[in-house]
Design a protein around this nucleic acid. Structure first.
Length: 220
DNA sequence: CACGACCCCTGGATGC
DNA sequence: TGCATCCAGGGGTCGT
């Protein structure tokens, strides 16, 4: 059979619409389901999303099991999670953004999870204690759970059409709040560039970990 | 292996 | 009012 894999990128949306309704701007795909029924529209303003078809189960498995994508952020195995953090000397922020370590955490949720964990984004991954790794693991789940409840973080700028913006953008405690007071200690949130992305953090709540020099760097 | 640089793309903010 | 310019980020590619 055929398999369809859709990546929403940043601004991708899937919407069910009556076939009588004309497609909104930036609609790139329309799936005609049963004749006379609703249609499934794929919109993507920024076009960072993608849709690809796999012609067989083997292709599909190669795609997903190629190590390209790590485990889901929900239900991470605490031991494996701790071990994967131990393996890298990179900044923890870079590790969180690495889809091979954990899939589905982007810049916003990485910053929010680190803020909640009180971990500085530039801390070396391998310097985190087991306790911190566990705190972070739980923070990721908490942040994502709350964000999903709030229907995500889709920024109003990118909604358009008949889409809905995400309510979580009103709950940001670090992301996009550079210069604004930390809502725990009122210290202005700082912004630094890390792994090619803006990283927002509270310089008081999130201390850089001293770093034990050996930090047993390891290969795969 | 890890990093930066560059590219894709659109719309909002900013400056003139 | 209307330009030009910069910026945001998920992810691929390429060079160091």
């Amino acid at each position: 059979g055929l398999f369809l894999v859709i990546h929403l990128g940043m601004t991708g949306q899937l919407q069910v619409k009556p076939s009588s309704q004309s497609p909104a701007d930036h609609t790139h795909l329309i799936f005609h389901l049963e004749p006379g029924t609703d249609q499934l529209h794929f919109r993507d303003i920024r076009r960072f999303g993608s849709a690809q078809v796999f012609t067989g189960r083997d292709d599909l498995h190669r795609f997903f099991d190629g190590g390209r994508l790590g485990p889901e952020p929900f239900g991470l195995d605490p031991t494996r999670w701790r071990d994967s953090l131990k393996k890298s000397t990179r900044a923890i922020k870079a590790v969180l953004l690495d889809q091979g370590v954990v899939a589905g955490v982007g810049n916003i949720y990485a910053d929010e999870s680190l803020f909640l964990s009180r971990i500085h984004p530039a801390s070396r991954s391998c310097d985190l204690s087991p306790k911190e790794a566990e705190t972070l693991r739980r923070a990721i789940e908490e942040v994502l759970t709350f964000a999903i409840e709030k229907r995500g973080s889709t920024i109003r700028n990118y909604v358009g059409g008949s889409g809905l913006s995400g309510g979580y953008q009103d709950e940001f405690r670090a992301y996009g709040r550079g210069g604004e007071p930390c809502n725990r200690c009122a210290t202005p949130i700082e912004v630094m560039r890390l792994a090619g992305r803006a990283s927002h953090f509270c310089p008081r709540c999130q201390k850089v970990k001293p770093g034990r020099s050996p930090c047993s760097s390891r290969k795969s």
